[in-house]
Design a protein around this nucleic acid. Structure first.
Lengths: 358, 358
DNA sequence: GTGAAAGCGCTAACAG
DNA sequence: CTGTTAGCGCTTTCAC
């Protein structure tokens, strides 16, 4: 039981032990090239005996591939991203890749530094959920250098050329809104954290550009589209604007409730906003779904625990990550995908919080 | 905007551009060794001009350190581990390290393969939340080879020599149990997923070994200790055994409720078990805290959303991760820690689900 | 202070 | 099939 026994066992050691040349040993150890059965056996056994462990660093140096992909995301501790990361690592592993994670906290500088660092470590490719900014130079630099980059969940106009794997946010909102409309609702409020003004949205951007809007904006757009399609009038007062935090959403919904806007349904476009909105509804002791139907975003654990349980829009998080990884790996193998972008459908999970209006 | 521009810019290129020798360039680029201000400037500018990006792989090869640590955990998508991973990456980053993650799903083979793979990539050290098994050879092999390993959250007897960073599980349960006792409860039920028989626990193992018991067992032990300390009789019937899944916990608690065991408080020793138990209590329309006081485990989001809100035992997840990283990094720098193990205290967050018995 | 040269562990021609 | 040689990009003696 020698300390640091293997820290040093190299192909040369194995070759010596097996009584063959360095290259013969290397050949059988790497599985490339041919070797006689005898050599094969002797080398394998020698390696076994010595406890040889190939040095992936050295391999990467010469092969040019580290078999590592980088995931640059806002926060692993966030349920959405942790589930996505899981999908990512699963797909990566089955292709023989490992993943190295970095959190940005939506800070552009941190993102830039992470990207640079991971590029130095020679990650073969990047999956990044980028920080919203005008000039994501760190990303464009990677791309210019020929490093494959797949965008996850979001994309800005400056990155319009890059492949994007995301949920169909517009479709997700249409799903929710139409479900409510079909139940008979006409006055449907939406809680949104989209920073964009609603008026801008009425002049629908061409389809190509929609995917470069923020997810929150796309979700708002889906709501507008669904209303339009079904001839339901859009009431600006029912668009409840919130910041990206529960307290703000709670306040917005609370105010709307106090204002007596007379809406019969409430659709929340984001997990955190759902939380705040739910609290406001609980505070006001509104009867759900009798007085108000409620649709939340993301199939969070608590949505099945509260009474009534909450109807939600569920995003395929795991699949999102695995799709991103798969997409990236294809690019690494120079396989051209059919479509540049991949847009996964969200699903509606009907529960007790939605019903026809009274 | 040449494609793959940097994929190739090396120290040699920079040296040429700066009109100095390779080693001079390397010296200023790496920051080691000395160079005249003039050289310094020329090299720096040349590097800047060319968009030089150091190859960390090559650096690692010669320096012997990849500045990467491996996190081998059951599942990133699990809230506990994702929060812990966040702490881990935060601490790692501030020390200039990156982390590469691997999920084991509590499968020994997967764990062994991950460990091997990451060792091949020459991770400088490992933080692992090991799969419970008798002979974790993959781990011991690493240790024998001199690779620093820090255990996270759990440890088996076979790994008793390795440093462990964990929550004080025994203390966590004492906290919960004593809180209930002090409220006046005497018939306190516990929902446990500990596989160990309670009888074994009465013969308290020496302190050193306690930390090598499973977390669930330690939590059960804390409950027993607290009862003993306060002279409250332990009733075997109030130890509700469950598998590690919500359905099982729900069934166990449901059965206990039906059996009319007359307990006035219920303490759940794990997040998933809390979920099941909560459902059972809701099913039976037990009044909380009037009929039964309820303490859950882990400060999950939903515990503040349901009515009444749930009193919980909160584990310092983020801190757990950062402590593990810090511990590992210290070991990498050959710093001997004061204590081999690190045991972080859990906290009780009092909410509405607990009150004196009626 | 600076350059030449060796070497980290491995793979990939290239002869033999 | 096998051994010799060169080289991936970088750091590090070691003379000058």
């Amino acid at each position: 039981m020698v300390s640091r026994r293997n820290q040093s066992v190299t192909v040369i050691d194995v070759a010596r032990e097996a009584g063959v040349s360095k290259s013969s040993a290397a050949r059988v150890l790497s599985g490339r090239g041919s070797a006689s059965p005898a050599t094969q056996r002797r080398v394998t056994e020698a390696a076994q005996r010595l406890g040889y462990r190939p040095n992936a660093l050295a391999r990467a140096m010469v092969s040019g591939s580290s078999h590592t992909i980088a995931a640059v995301i806002p926060d692993v501790a966030n349920a959405f991203f942790s589930a996505t990361l899981r999908g990512l690592t699963d797909a990566a592993r089955s292709a023989g890749f490992e993943v190295i994670v970095s959190n940005t906290d939506n800070d552009a500088d941190v993102e830039a530094r992470s990207l640079e660092l991971l590029a130095e470590k020679r990650a073969d490719g990047f999956v990044v959920a980028p920080v919203f900014q005008d000039a994501p130079e760190a990303i464009t630099r990677l791309v210019e250098d020929g490093t494959p980059v797949v965008l996850l969940d979001r994309r800005m106009p400056a990155l319009a050329d890059l492949p994007l794997v995301s949920v169909d946010h517009v479709g997700a909102s249409r799903l929710a809104t139409e479900y409510l409309i079909e139940l008979g609702h006409r006055r449907i409020a939406i809680v949104t954290e989209a920073p964009d003004r609603l008026t801008d949205l009425r002049e629908l951007p061409p389809d190509a550009e929609i995917s470069s809007l923020r997810p929150s904006t796309q979700r708002l757009l889906g709501y507008v589209q669904a209303l339009d399609d079904h001839g339901v009038e859009l009431d600006q007062d029912l668009v409840l604007e919130s910041d990206y935090d529960a307290g703000s959403a709670r306040a917005a919904v609370s105010a709307a409730l106090d204002a007596g806007l007379g809406f019969t349904a409430l659709y929340c476009t984001d997990a955190i906003v759902t939380l705040g909105a739910y609290n406001a509804v609980a505070d006001h002791q509104v009867a759900v779904p009798d007085d108000i139907s409620f649709i939340g975003f993301d199939d969070q654990e608590w949505t099945t625990l509260v009474r009534p349980s909450i109807t939600v829009i569920d995003q395929p998080r795991h699949e999102l990550g695995s799709a991103a990884a798969t997409r990236l790996l294809a690019q690494l193998r120079d396989i051209d995908p059919d479509e540049r972008d991949l847009r996964l459908p969200a699903h509606l999970i009907p529960r007790e919080s939605t019903a026809p209006p009274r």
